[in-house]
Nucleic acid binder design. Structure first.
Lengths: 199, 199
DNA sequence: ATACATACATACTGGTCGGTATGTATAACA
DNA sequence: TGTTATACATACCGACCAGTATGTATGTAT
């Protein structure tokens, strides 16, 4: 490499690490594979990241976290009708899936399952992302209740937990079945449930 | 080892492998750790199992699969009221959890997340188990419909997918949050949903 | 032009991994 | 009692791993 571009190098490493981790998990992710994919050398990698763990943390903090914000948190915070927004966001999360990408499941959930019992740093980061997601839903439901859109009888907090759980579970089932149809079918029940939250 | 007991040796290996895999995942599971736990030697292990992969398959086929049958499939098949049975089985799955075991999540889901994109042998085995579970629920709901216990308007198949997804998702969230309360709260929504399936 | 920090590059290390080669003790069977 | 398959035990192998030591080229500030 003759022309230097440290930011680009760093981003390339994070992106490649995301792919490798998403395919093989964090522990089985090979730094050498990441280096081969990016044409970055080991010296450069360890210049930007003190360890494999820190590279993994950066993937969560700078890539997965941002993706969650863009696709869920921000749209939910800007929504005026939480029910409609949830339904359309769920639809969008189905539509942007093909039979290939479905096999990799939800990157956040993958990492959560693998790393949360093993490494507290991962667990806290991942948990914070889930929390922001769930809070955005819970806040939306609460606001919907004061606006008269959402039933007063339900618990916004419990409903939010349940919705997040159902989405993650559906993605997980679909991943294992290698089938977008399984995702659709599993989320159909969720969509009907969300309809029942209307006032 | 002076007195031989090949069956016991084999079972000990499978049990220890289950623990190790459940803690660290399959790929990161160390055969040496399993051998240390069991006081079995590597020669004995490779006498009983041709490879690490086959040991993993045996854990799924002979341990996880059986546990799923005992705790879900058989009770559901013997049930006369699917709604009541589901609710009590869900309650039982909450009660048998403490803050320690919650951190390891659902062994089946853990393996599914890690191995289904990587190894087709694991994927098929795991998928078959999920299928039996889901089918038992779907069959129960269908039977409930003919018995007049369950609403005619719902799709038994879609509901079964949704229920399994919600349970797995809730377990997954609770694992990441290290909290039985998260499991309870997430499943509360599911229980309310199941109540609405009553005729 | 000089000095210095940043951004790489290369070669290597110790350790762990799954797997194997080979040998030996035990049990079953003739 | 002799034979043979089973059930282990030990020592070792090559491959791969994350990480490091060391060196060099590049950009930047003075």
């Amino acid at each position: 490499m003759v022309i230097r571009n440290p930011d680009k190098t760093r981003t390339a490493l994070i992106n490649a690490a995301f792919e490798e981790i998403n395919q093989n998990g964090f522990q089985a992710a090979s730094l050498n594979n990441i280096l081969n994919e990016t044409d970055v050398t080991k010296g450069a990698l360890y210049h930007h990241f003190p360890s494999k763990l820190d590279l993994g943390y950066a993937v969560v903090d700078e890539l997965i976290s941002e993706a969650m914000n863009e696709s869920w948190v921000v749209p939910l915070e800007n929504s005026n009708n939480i029910i409609d927004s949830l339904l359309s966001l769920i639809d969008r999360s189905i539509k942007c899936r093909d039979d290939e990408s479905i096999c990799l499941g939800c990157p956040l959930n993958n990492l959560a399952q693998e790393m949360s019992p093993i490494d507290e740093g991962f667990r806290e980061r991942i948990n914070a992302i889930f929390d922001r997601w769930r809070s955005a839903i819970a806040d939306g439901l609460s606001k919907g209740q004061t606006d008269g859109i959402v039933k007063e009888t339900i618990s916004a907090d419990a409903s939010a937990y349940f919705i997040v759980a159902a989405i993650e579970g559906a993605t997980s089932l679909a991943k294992n079945a290698k089938s977008v149809d399984v995702l659709k079918t599993s989320l159909q029940g969720l969509k009907e449930h969300i309809q029942t939250l209307r006032n």
